[in-house]
Design a binder for these strands. Structure first.
Length: 652
RNA sequence: GGGCCCGUAGCGCAGCUAGGAUAGCGCGGCGGCCUUCUAAGCCGCAGGUCCCGGGUUCGAAUCCCGGCGGGCCCGCCA
């Protein structure tokens, strides 16, 4: 029995006695302990069902009193307060937990339905950073929640290897290879620097080209901004022509990026700059690569991009593995394009009245399809024949439903992509796909850092690996200050579990619709509203059972009348709410609900731990009952942590 | 200009979807608690115009309308 069943039992009984539908009976949580466990607002109820208050009171009271789980019915102001029979309810709840064990909180509402959770899906041209990690944690936790609820879950990583950002990286990588400049750091970090630097040169040459019509002093086909040029630009910044002014400002911003990248990645920077002497139009080269890759028409381009994508993906997946995050499938965007599926989707859309050609590009007229909401049209195919990201994502979505057979698809993608996600859904509707409604955008707000703006285009980020190393280091430091002694192996295991737990919890506990200000000190402060706090409570609970002479707890042979303290009762009640918390978390797409729940549960356990002795209590029956309670706590908290992808260490 | 989201204690956040009793938690501040199951802990104190203004209601942090403040999006980028 869990809390929702207790509530249901009472509702059913009262609704029968009053002869009204169950939905009309609203049971609420009392705000104070002396008001009992469950309350009914008499005024509201009597109005809702059209019956006099005193009559309702009479019926409810006698109906509730007949239930064996109800101990006492009291009246206070306009409330009827029910006090539950602690012994009986405790018995039901603890038995349920100890019998169901690692299945407590699980259910079969998913009925084995196949669902896809797509998450992380970062560009394979840079390391995964702390911002991406929020996505991974939410996606991974949500997958675990779905699994616990009986869904068949597949976790997919969309490898975005088409698109300009890959051509930019590929061109730079190729140039360096020809110059015999080889990577000597972590590959993904190295690749990220190439992307940022080539991207910068594309940008600079573009601006210079436009600037040339105003200022011939700035040569139009040079990639670097010299110091002289920069001084000159600054002296002209106050020019009155707005167009010129904005170009100057952009270029001056590029200069600061240039200096930063030159400083941090001198070898890559100089190598690419030297190689560029032989390239007259970098942007054109990039576009050529983009076209060649998407059409698979140049083996050198294809093998080069594939090479860097695979190497980068290895680093990304290795990093995520450190956080215990894994995938069932890597879906290469290029495979999707090369298979002809993207083309087919465009063709299918062409048969609807909503596709039209504008200036050589193919545009999906979403505004005409749905006039009730305002939504911008979507360019599907550029005038050079290449597709854009959203187009490929439409095909990808169809692939998930039709080729994989998913009944529902969850996309963990930042809220900044709200619009494209809606556009995809509309495109599915235009195609008459019945599953359009089963595409769920699990959006989340970004991670911000204090005094630091992350940017892939500038190769500025806090990588997930850095954070991991820092977290491990801090836990080891904490262990060194501990009064306990640990073996080396134990230290490493705890450091990993707790370090990762701290980071994951910090990223999961906040509602996904709120931006997170990530401060390392705060996230890794092991003494807060934190993952380690919950883990610590588990370790303490485990400690008690380790020291108990008999760990064999049979819930059927426990005298529940011995659990008499308020601390015990509060803990039992809260544990009984775990299953409904999991359901709510799934229904509202909010893993943070479980995080929040575990925090209050751990807090409650800690209070119990401080106030109620277990091992030292003289009465054997009491000791046994409390041991059962502690064991039940371990079950609930470890199930909950597991759903968040956080380990529960036995020792800390 | 339009769309989505957020606004609760000095700071970080729950509570709002299904309106009810004295609005919670953590950090930070102050004061206590380790010969007794792990002090990564516990207990106490101080700290609030629930952004503002209307409306609905016996009753609003919660629902509705209108403002204000902040974020994101509205690209032949991803």
């Amino acid at each position: 029995m869990d809390w929702s069943e207790v509530v249901e039992l009472i509702r059913r009984s009262i609704s029968r006695s009053l002869n009204v539908e169950k939905d009309k009976i609203v049971l609420i949580e009392p705000t104070r302990e002396e008001y009992g466990d469950i309350s009914i607002h008499l005024y509201k109820l009597s109005r809702d069902i059209g019956i006099r208050q005193d009559r309702a009171r009479e019926i409810i009271t006698s109906s509730a009193e007949r239930l064996d789980i109800v101990d006492k019915v009291e009246e206070e102001k306009y409330f009827i307060n029910l006090h539950l029979n602690r012994e009986l309810v405790s018995k039901h709840i603890i038995t349920e937990i100890l019998v169901r064990r690692d299945k407590y909180g699980h259910s079969d509402i998913g009925k084995g339905e196949l669902v896809i959770v797509e998450h992380t899906s970062t560009n394979p041209n840079a390391p995964i950073h702390i911002g991406n990690l929020r996505n991974s944690c939410i996606g991974d936790a949500f997958s675990r929640i779905l699994k616990a609820l009986g869904f068949r879950v597949r976790r997919h990583f969309y490898v975005d290897d088409c698109g300009l950002q890959m051509s930019i990286t590929g061109v730079g990588y190729d140039l360096l290879k020809k110059m015999r400049v080889h990577p000597h750091e972590e590959f993904d970090v190295w690749l990220g620097s190439i992307y940022a630097i080539v991207n910068l040169f594309v940008e600079i040459s573009d601006i210079k080209k436009n600037l040339y019509q105003y200022l011939q002093e700035i040569p139009k086909n040079k990639y670097e901004i010299t110091e002289e040029e920069y001084r000159y630009i600054k002296s002209r910044l106050r020019d009155e022509d707005p167009e010129l002014k904005s170009l100057l400002r952009e270029l001056s911003e590029c200069y600061s990026i240039q200096e930063d990248l030159k400083n941090r990645f001198p070898e890559v920077y100089k190598g690419i700059l030297r190689a560029l002497e032989n390239i007259s139009d970098l942007k054109q080269t990039v576009e050529k690569w983009n076209y060649a890759y998407e059409t698979k028409s140049d083996t050198h381009v294809v093998s080069t991009i594939r090479e860097i994508v695979d190497k980068c993906m290895k680093d990304i997946l290795d990093t995520l593995k450190m956080y215990d995050i894994e995938f069932d499938s890597l879906d290469y965007e290029s495979d999707l394009v090369w298979s002809g599926l993207v083309e087919k989707v465009i063709k299918d859309l062409g048969r609807t009245p909503y596709l039209s050609r504008q200036n050589g590009a193919l545009v999906l007229k979403l505004s005409e399809f749905n006039k009730s909401i305002e939504i911008p049209d979507l360019v599907l195919v550029r005038s050079d024949g290449t597709t854009i990201y959203t187009t490929r994502d439409i095909a990808y979505t169809i692939w998930k439903f039709e080729c994989i057979g998913a009944k529902r698809v969850y996309n963990v993608i930042g809220t900044e992509q709200n619009l494209p996600q809606r556009q995809i859904k509309l495109a599915l509707k235009i195609l008459g796909k019945p599953y359009a409604e089963n595409l769920v955008h699990l959006g989340y707000e970004l991670v911000h850092l204090k005094n630091f703006k992350m940017s892939s285009r500038r190769a500025r980020y806090i990588t997930a690996r850095e954070v991991y190393r820092e977290a491990i280091g801090r836990v080891l430091e904490r262990l060194a200050r501990s009064r306990r002694t640990y073996s080396e192996h134990e230290k490493q295991r705890i450091a990993k579990a707790v370090g990762v737990g701290a980071i994951k919890f910090a990223l999961l506990k906040t509602s996904r619709l709120k931006p997170i200000l990530f401060e390392l000190d705060r996230a890794l402060n092991l003494e807060e509203n934190s993952g380690p706090f919950i883990q610590y409570s588990y370790a303490r609970a485990t400690g008690i059972l380790r020291k108990a002479e008999s760990v064999d707890i049979n819930p059927y042979f426990v005298d529940y009348s011995k659990l008499t303290t308020d601390e015990e009762w509060r803990l039992i009640k809260l544990m009984s709410k775990f299953p409904s918390t999991v359901i709510n978390s799934y229904r509202d797409l909010r893993p943070s609900l479980i995080a929040e729940y575990l925090l209050s549960l751990a807090k409650m356990f800690t209070t119990f731990y401080e106030k109620v002795p277990v091992l030292s209590v003289a009465d054997e029956g009491t000791r046994k009952a409390r041991l059962a309670l502690v064991e039940a706590y371990r079950v609930v908290v470890s199930n909950g942590l597991h759903m968040l992808g956080i380990k529960a260490p036995e020792v800390m």
